[in-house]
Amino acid sequence: MSYMKGPRVSKFDRDPLVSSPLNAAISAQDRETLSMVAAALKDGRMRLAFQPVVYAADSSIIGFFEGFIRLLNLRDQVIPARDFMPTVEERQLGREIDCAALQLGLLAMQRNPQIRVSINMSARSVGYRPWSDILRRALQEAPRLGANLILEINEASAMQVPDVLKPFMTEMREYGIVFALDDFGAGMTSLRTLQELSFEIAKIDGSLIKHIDRLPDAQGATKAAIAIAQELGMYVVAESVETEGEANWLRQAGVGCLQGYLFGPPTVTPDFRAFRHGRPNLKAS
């Protein structure tokens, strides 16, 4: 008896998760990234790099420092965030990274009570118990930390869970914490939702800033973003400022603070003595 054999089915056809050699390679790369990040967190190979955010009117005065999480490989070399954040930000590892960043930021503030620090977080971390426990425990032990803490949430993340975010922001404001909307102007945002959340700071997305002094089209978009932020009562910060030309244009456009390599790169060994108690009036409209 003979049997007719059907067409040969490869593993890429059988498994929808690896439906092509390209997808298989990407999946393998993601698994490697997740393993690398998990090992770094488990071993405590992480640092916070701090970048100054300066007044536009007087760049010698630092308004606050932004803390950026840095993971280290086994040779203590920094793993760039772009190599792992896109893979982990929607997973539990993303929440664990938020926990690490918050712990390191709070520790730096406890050791240097004169500084003001902003820490990045995902809106999803609001509902992650370990993250909220770290924050609430620190505020219970040292309530004054809240007055010097800024929590940064990017625009896309904030729009995902506004109903969860709003009561959390209201609660944390009782401790003096303020909130920054990161990457503002990068995407389509519900202005009504923004108005309800009432962020104190809008950080104009760096993609709008590059060569802003020489690109009329970009100038129009940036002026519009600044105008919307100000209309909503947000203090405006511009990110990724790299040249004096960009800085001068942004000053004239009404930006309150500037951040970028022109004023200093993120560093794991910051000189916090340079902080001169600059405090932007974040409540001003």
Rank of each mutant, 00 (worst) to 15 (best):
L215E: 14
N120Y: 08
Q29S: 10
Q51N: 08
L194K: 05
E196V: 10
L71N: 02
A224H: 14
L102Y: 07
I69E: 02
I201N: 02
G44L: 03
V88D: 04
A274G: 01
A38C: 02
A218E: 10
D183K: 11
A224W: 06
G6N: 14
F84C: 01
K203S: 01
S122I: 01
T189M: 11
S122T: 07
V164N: 12
L165C: 08
G264D: 00
I62F: 01
A147C: 10
A49R: 04
E239Q: 14
F65D: 09
A202Y: 04
D15M: 12
A247V: 11
F184T: 08
G176T: 10
P266V: 01
I97S: 08
P86S: 04
N23E: 10
F65G: 00
I212Q: 06
I212G: 06
R276D: 15
T222H: 13
L135I: 06
F179R: 05
D133S: 13
D43A: 15
R45K: 15
R75Y: 11
F65R: 05
V161L: 11
A180E: 09
A225S: 13
G176H: 04
Q160K: 07
G254V: 01
P130L: 12
A274K: 15
M46A: 15
F64M: 11
F199I: 02
V78C: 08
A138F: 11
N148M: 00
Q259L: 00
L258R: 02
F68G: 02
R124W: 07
E242C: 05
Q29H: 12
S20G: 12
M36D: 04
E174F: 04
F64L: 03
L48W: 00
A138T: 09
V161E: 14
H277D: 13
I226E: 05
A24W: 06
N73G: 06
V236S: 10
R192E: 14
G146M: 12
A81Q: 01
G264R: 00
I134S: 08
G185W: 04
A24E: 11
N120M: 05
Q110L: 12
D205A: 10
N281T: 15
L194R: 06
L107W: 09
R75L: 13
I115A: 01
M159D: 06
Q140M: 14
Q252M: 12
D76N: 08
P280W: 00
A253E: 12
S19N: 15
S240E: 03
G260S: 06
M36A: 05
Q195W: 15
G63I: 01
A156K: 10
L197P: 08
M4V: 15
L72C: 05
R276V: 04
V117A: 09
M1D: 00
F179H: 07
A274D: 12
G94R: 00
P16I: 14
A57T: 11
G256M: 09
N73S: 05
I212P: 09
T87C: 11
P86H: 07
G187S: 13
